[in-house]
Amino acid sequence: MFSFCSDPSQLDGFYWLSCYLTTGKHMGFYASFGTVLLLLAITAPTALAFGFFGASAARSNLAPLRWFGKGYISVVRGVPDIAFFLFFIIALDQGIEYLRHKVKCSDWDQPIRQGNDFIVCDAAKMPLGSAPQWIHESYGFTLAVLTFAIVFGAFAANVLFGAMRAVPRAQIETAEAYGMTRKQSFWRILVPQMWVYALPGLSNLWLVLIKATPLLFLLGIEDIVYWARELGGTKTSRFTDYPHGDWRVWYFLFLLVFYLAFTKVSEIFLELLMIRLTHGQATTGGEAQRKAA
């Protein structure tokens, strides 16, 4: 990176460290923080959407839809989430390939599961064997996002379901008295008011989601945990210009501090958001704001 980095063995102290921390591999490490933030940025709204549909389904008038919504919420609770992550990442992959196989290779006569193998025709492979590397990587990332969204969608559905029930009944009754249909009162009265009740649960969920991001490592993504293990391991001078001992403990200490800081910053922002959302609401918080103003 810097001009004085051409011969690291001659350097020491601060200069050595500044060269060491700017090697190509470390750039990969820093970029993987971007991966984590990208995951959060995509997963949070997707999971919220899943949650919204789950919660709406759970309070539907249609029995099968209601069972689906309630089943979705309660199955994810009883089982460790990491088992879901490990399950969905394979199950989604195989499910997609199976569907493509059914569509594209209808003349295929052999079974798909042969002993310990899962075999689909070449045209149904996802992504195609000939696809460039970046497609493989982004496909893996997409599957990971989808897995996160399914699991966290169930948690969000649980929170939103509770929030929808927490909106005072009188508000809905008023809407009905004004002649609104069920659909109108849902979108115009219930949905705008439920957020303030949902926010404590959703804030908690956001903090939980942040803390779940290192599990990306288990889904085969080259994330910060992968790089920390990779870079921290003992390096001899045969393979690198920057030999060092086992520094993994320092790398993980850095990750620990990163997550603590991230949590702290999130907590501050969520508190500000709560103050904003409470404004003008018929709750004790809103009442206190009104009196203070």
Partner: peptide
């Protein structure tokens, strides 16, 4: 409470290792 358990495990393991 502020850090992931996953990272805590890794950190503790490498700490004990050193």
């Amino acid at each position: 409470r502020g850090s992931p358990l996953f990272i805590q495990f890794f950190f503790a393991y490498f700490l004990f290792l050193s």
